[in-house]
Design a protein around this nucleic acid. Structure first.
Length: 852
RNA sequence: GCCCAAGUGGCGGAAUGGUAGACGCAGGGGAUUCAAAAUCCCCCGCCUUCACGGGCGUGUGGGUUCGAGUCCCACCUUGGGCACCA
C-alpha cells in the first residue's frame, strides 16, 4: 500500500484530540515547559511563513512532551487593528464579523497541520473577555502612575485618520497606509516606558538565550548616552529665562562653543513667539519641516538670532548668541544645545551660514593647522592634540577629556554628569474603532475619571458604520454619553482606543489562565511563566518585544505577575521567511509580467512557459500576491500532506535563515516520507528469523548515533541538520541486512526521532509495528553510550598539515603505539626520506601530524 | 554617516582549531521494464593524469598555530538596524 497522507493525517489528529494529548496540565512530578509562537493577525490567510513558525514550535513542544515535561503550547489571534476597519469601509461589513470569520477560516487552515496546540486556551484579543481584562490592567497601571496624559505633537496619518507611534512612522510615512505623516498637537495617553529605559537596557545582558542581534537592536533603540548637563546664564532674556539648561555628550568641546541653540518648541522660543511675529513666523516654518528621510537629509540648517546672549561658564566675559534652530529636537535632552562648529558637522554648517566663529578644541596633532574645511570628528578613543586642555594632558583621547570635564564641572558646581536615553514614552491612543477602548470618562467637574472595575469591560458598540472617515465612537452618542462614575453628572467616554501593540504585550501571560476573571491568575502565572521558548519573526525585534518587557515589569508592579517573570521570554528564536522564486517576462508595455509557478516548466535551471518563451527567474523572493509567487499551505497539504510540508520547511536551510520553497524540494520531501513508509511495510512483512550478529550490531550502532545527533540538533535549533541525519540513517536502514528484530527496533526509533517533525507518519509507523500507546506520549529514545564508542578508529595521517594517508587502529591504543604505527607507514617513510621528523603530534581518536 | 552580521561546489547548506563539501536539489551513468512512470544502485569542487596519483581550493591580503572555513588584523562585497538624539 502506498503512503497516503490524506487518510493517515485526519486519523491521528482525531486520536490526539480524543486522548487530550496536548491539553496542558499541571502536575508536581514533571517540570513545565512553555513554548510559544508569536500569534497571528487574522488576515484570513495562513501562509507558509506561519507553517514554518508553528512547525518549529511544534517540534520543540512535541520533543519536550516526550522528554517528560508538562507542556503549554497555546495559540490565539492578535485580532484588533485597522485591516478589519479597512475591510468594513471597502465592503460595508462589520470589523467584528470580518475578524471572527477570518479566525474561523484560519483555525480551519491550522488544524490540518497537526500542531500540538492546546486549543482549549485559544482566545482573540478582540474578545470582550480579553480586552476587559486589559482595561483592568490599564486602570491598575493608571493608579500606579505608569500611564499618564499629556499634550503632545503626534504623528498624524491623514489617510488612516489616526495617530502613529514614532516606531510606526517609516521614512516619514505611515507604516500601514504609506501616507506622508503630519505633525499635530493632541492630548494623548502614554505609558511611562522611558522611566524604565535604564532597567530595560541593563536587563538585556541577562537575556543569554536571545539572539545577540535582537539585544543589540534594543540597546540601540533605547539609546543610552552619558554627558554633561549644565546651564548658561543669559542676558536680555525674558523673565524666568535667566538660565538655559543644555545637555551635551561632548563637554570636552565646550571651549570651542560659538553659539547656543534652542528648539522651536523650547519654552523660551514659545515665549518669544508670543510677543514677536517674526519669531512666530520662523518657528512655524521650522516646525513644518518635512519628516521624510530625504527632507531631513537635504534640509537647510535654519537659525533665528534672538538677540539674547549667554555667558560661557568657564569665562564669564565670553558671550555667545542664542539662536532658535530648526535642527534641535525638543524631546531629547533639554531641547537646547551649545554649538561647537569645529567638532560637529551640523554646527559647522550652521556656523558657516551665519558667520559664527569656528574654534577647534583639539587637532589631529600639535602642528596641524587650526583652519578647518569641515568639522573634525574623530572617534572618542583616538588620541588627539588639545589646544586648551583644562585638567587633562595635551595628548589625550576624547573620552578621557569628556570624563575629565565632567569631573571638573561637578567639582566646580558648573553642572553634572547625566545619562540620557533616546527611548520616548509609548503613546498608546488611537483614534480608531476596532481596538480596546480606554476605560475612562471625561467629566467637566471631576476631570478624567477611571471607569469602575465592576463596569468592565467597556465594550465596543456593535451598531457602527464606516461610511465617513474618522472614529465612529466619536459620533455614537448613546455609547459616548454616560454619567460620570464619580459624581453622576453627564460626561463622555474616552473615544480613543489602544494601540494594538498593547494587546500583544501581555497575551503570553493570559494564556496561563485564559478564562480567569482577573487579568492573570497568580498561581497559574507563577507555575507556567516564563515562556521557555518564544519563536517569531525578526520584524518584532524592537517594538513587540520591548513593549512586552515593559508590560511584564508594569504587571509585576501592579501585582499581576511574579517578580520572576519581569523578563517574560527566557529564550527567543527568530526564524527566517519562506521565499519562492519569481518568474517574469516583459510585457508589451515594458512592464514585468509575473507568471504562476504552475505555468512554468523548469529545465536545467531555466524556466519556460507552455509556448516556449523563456522566463527570467528571480530566486528567493518574499512571497507576495502581486508577484504571483505565493505557495498556499492548504494546497500543499492536500497534494502531499501536512507532514511533507512540515518536513520541507524544516529541511535545507538553518531555521534562522530564509528557506526557498521549491517544487522539487517538496517532491523530494514527499518521496522521502514515502520511502520511510515503504521501509516500515517491508520490515513488517519480514519473516521473524534469528538476527545475524554483525549486521544487527552495525545497524543498531548507527541508530544510537542517530539518536545522539538528532537530539543534539533539536535542542540547538539545528532542524536542518537533524533532518540530514535522519536522511542518512534512513539510507542505512534501507540497505541494512540485519534481522527483523533489529530492523523493527530501528524503524520504531526512526519514527520516534521523526515524530516532532512528521507526527502523523510517525504515529502510523508506531501503530504498524505494534508500539504501545501513542508515539506522542512515548519517552524520547536515549542513546546508549556503549553503542557510540567504536572499537577501531580511522586516523588520518598528515605530513606538514596535509592529509597523506590513513591508518586504522584500536580506539583505546595509546599515543606512543599510534605514533609507532604511523611512523612505519610508507607515506611517512617516503616523506622522511631516511631523516628524523621534527615533531610528531598525535591527537587520540582524531589525527596524527608529522612535521618533517 | 554610525552600529552589527554574513561571504564554503551549478544551487540550499554541513563541519567541538584536527580527513572541507555531510544531507538535499540540479546534473550524469546504470539496473528493472516490451516501453514508460515509479523504485533501486553508482558518480558528481576545480585543474592534471589512461590509471595509481598529484596540484589547487571555504570573498581578498596578511598573521597566530604542528594544523585555520573556524582564532586575530586590514580590505572588498552583500544583507540588516539606526540616523538632525547634541
Amino acid at each position: 500500500m502506498a503512503y497516503d497522507a490524506s487518510s493517515i493525517e485526519p486519523k491521528w489528529q482525531a486520536a490526539w484530540e480524543q486522548a487530550g494529548t496536548f491539553t496542558a496540565t499541571r502536575s508536581g512530578d514533571k517540570p513545565k515547559y512553555y513554548v510559544l509562537e508569536m500569534f497571528p493577525y487574522p488576515s484570513g490567510n495562513l501562509h507558509m511563513g506561519h507553517v514554518r513558525n508553528y512547525t518549529m514550535g511544534d517540534v520543540i513542544a512535541r520533543y519536550k512532551i516526550s522528554t517528560g515535561h508538562n507542556v503549554l503550547h497555546p495559540m490565539g489571534f492578535d485580532a484588533f487593528g485597522m485591516p478589519a476597519e479597512n475591510a468594513a469601509m471597502a465592503s460595508g461589513g462589520h470589523p467584528k464579523d470580518w475578524t471572527y470569520n477570518n479566525i474561523d477560516t484560519m483555525v480551519g487552515q491550522m488544524k490540518p497541520l497537526g500542531l500540538s496546540l492546546d486549543w482549549s486556551r485559544m482566545f482573540a484579543t478582540c474578545d470582550p473577555e480579553y480586552y476587559g481584562q486589559q482595561q483592568a490592567l490599564f486602570l491598575d497601571f493608571l493608579e500606579a502612575g505608569l500611564v499618564y496624559r499629556k499634550n503632545a505633537v503626534v504623528n498624524w496619518d491623514p489617510v488612516d485618520m489616526t495617530v502613529l507611534a514614532n516606531e510606526q512612522v517609516i521614512d516619514g510615512k505611515g507604516w500601514r497606509s504609506g501616507a506622508e505623516v503630519e505633525r499635530r498637537e493632541l492630548t494623548q495617553w502614554f505609558f511611562k516606558i522611558s522611566d524604565m529605559a535604564g532597567e530595560l537596557r541593563d536587563a538585556l545582558d541577562g537575556l543569554d538565550n536571545w539572539p545577540a542581534k535582537v539585544r543589540l537592536m534594543q540597546e540601540n533603540w533605547i539609546g543610552q548616552s552619558r554627558g554633561l548637563q549644565f546651564a548658561f546664564s543669559t542676558s536680555e532674556a525674558p523673565e524666568g529665562f535667566d538660565r538655559i539648561e543644555v545637555y551635551t555628550t561632548r563637554p570636552d568641546t565646550l571651549m570651542g562653543a560659538s553659539f547656543v541653540g534652542i528648539s522651536p518648541d523650547h519654552p523660551l522660543a514659545k515665549q518669544l513667539e508670543a510677543h514677536d511675529p517674526k519669531v512666530a513666523a520662523f518657528c512655524a516654518e521650522a516646525r513644518k519641516g518635512g519628516t521624510t528621510a530625504e527632507a531631513i537629509e537635504t534640509a537647510e540648517k535654519l537659525g533665528y538670532d534672538t538677540g539674547i546672549t549667554c555667558r560661557h561658564p568657564f569665562d564669564t566675559s565670553w558671550e555667545l548668541p542664542v539662536y532658535i534652530a530648526n535642527f534641535i529636537l525638543m524631546d531629547y535632552g533639554t531641547g537646547a544645545i551649545f554649538g561647537c562648529p569645529a567638532h560637529d558637522q551640523r554646527d559647522f554648517d550652521f556656523a558657516t551660514k551665519y558667520g559664527l566663529p569656528i574654534i577647534p578644541t583639539f587637532l589631529p596633532s600639535e602642528d596641524s593647522s587650526p583652519e578647518l574645511e569641515e568639522a573634525f570628528v574623530p572617534t572618542k578613543t583616538e588620541k588627539v592634540w588639545w589646544t586648551r586642555p583644562i585638567n587633562w594632558e595635551p595628548e589625550a583621547t576624547g573620552q578621557e577629556a569628556i570624563d575629565a570635564t565632567i569631573d571638573f564641572c561637578e567639582a566646580n558646581g558648573v553642572g553634572q554628569g547625566v545619562t540620557q536615553y533616546r527611548l520616548r514614552d509609548w503613546g498608546l491612543s488611537r483614534q480608531r474603532y476596532w481596538g480596546c477602548p480606554i476605560p475612562v470618562v471625561h467629566c467637566e467637574t471631576c476631570g478624567v475619571v477611571p471607569e469602575r472595575k465592576e463596569n468592565l469591560p467597556v465594550q465596543l458598540p456593535d451598531d457602527v458604520t464606516f461610511d465617513v472617515p474618522g472614529n465612529p465612537l466619536d459620533r455614537h452618542p448613546t455609547w459616548r454619553d454616560v454619567p460620570c462614575p464619580s459624581c453622576g453628572a453627564p460626561a463622555q467616554r474616552e473615544t480613543d482606543t489602544m494601540d494594538t501593540f498593547v494587546d500583544s504585550s501581555w497575551y503570553f501571560a493570559r494564556f496561563t489562565a485564559p478564562r480567569a476573571d482577573t487579568p492573570t491568575d497568580m498561581d497559574e502565572a507563577s507555575y507556567w511563566m516564563n515562556v521557555d521558548q518564544y519563536i517569531g519573526g525578526i520584524e518584532h525585534a524592537i517594538l513587540h518585544l520591548l513593549y512586552s518587557r515593559f508590560f511584564a515589569r508594569a504587571m509585576q508592579i501592579t501585582g499581576h505577575l511574579p517578580a520572576s517573570a519581569i523578563e517574560p521570554f527566557d529564550a527567543l528564536f527568530t526564524q527566517g521567511m519562506v521565499t519562492h522564486a519569481i518568474y517574469k517576462t516583459t510585457g508589451t508595455d515594458g512592464r514585468p509580467v509575473y507568471h504562476y509557478p504552475e505555468d512554468v516548466t523548469l529545465r536545467d535551471g531555466s524556466g519556460f512557459l507552455a509556448d516556449g518563451t523563456e522566463v527570467t527567474i528571480v530566486p528567493s523572493a518574499k512571497m507576495s500576491k502581486s508577484k504571483n509567487n505565493v505557495v498556499n499551505p492548504l494546497e500543499i497539504v492536500s497534494k502531499y500532506g501536512a507532514d511533507t510540508a512540515r518536513w520541507f520547511v524544516l529541511s535545507d536551510s538553518p531555521p534562522e535563515r530564509d528557506v526557498e520553497w521549491t517544487a522539487s524540494g517538496a517532491d523530494a520531501a514527499f518521496k522521502h516520507l514515502s520511502r520511510v513508509w515503504n521501509i516500515c511495510d517491508r520490515i513488517a512483512a519480514m519473516p521473524a528469523e534469528a538476527g545475524t550478529q554483525e549486521p544487527d550490531e552495525a545497524l543498531l550502532r548507527e541508530m544510537h548515533k542517530a539518536i545522539r545527533d538528532v537530539t543534539v540538533n533539536i535542542e540547538s535549533f539545528g532542524f536542518n541538520a537533524a533532518i540530514a541525519k535522519l536522511y542518512a540513517f534512513t539510507a542505512t536502514l534501507q540497505k541494512s541486512k540485519a534481522g527483523k528484530d533489529a530492523q523493527r527496533t530501528a524503524i520504531m526509533t526512526l519514527a520516534q526521532l521523526m515524530a516532532p517533525m512528521t507526527p502523523h507518519l510517525a504515529e502510523d509507523i508506531w501503530a504498524h509495528q505494534g508500539g504501545t500507546g501513542l508515539i506522542a506520549n512515548a519517552p524520547w529514545p536515549v542513546a546508549d553510550e556503549a553503542m557510540l564508542t567504536e572499537d577501531t578508529v580511522t586516523l588520518p595521517i598528515q605530513i606538514n598539515g596535509k592529509r597523506r594517508a590513513e591508518i586504522s587502529v584500536p580506539a583505546d591504543m595509546d599515543k606512543a603505539e599510534v605514533e609507532k604505527i604511523a611512523m612505519a607507514h610508507e607515506a611517512v617513510l617516503k616523506a622522511l626520506n631516511g631523516g628524523a621528523p621534527k615533531k610528531v603530534i598525535v591527537v587520540p581518536g582524531r589525527i596524527v601530524n608529522v612535521v618533517v
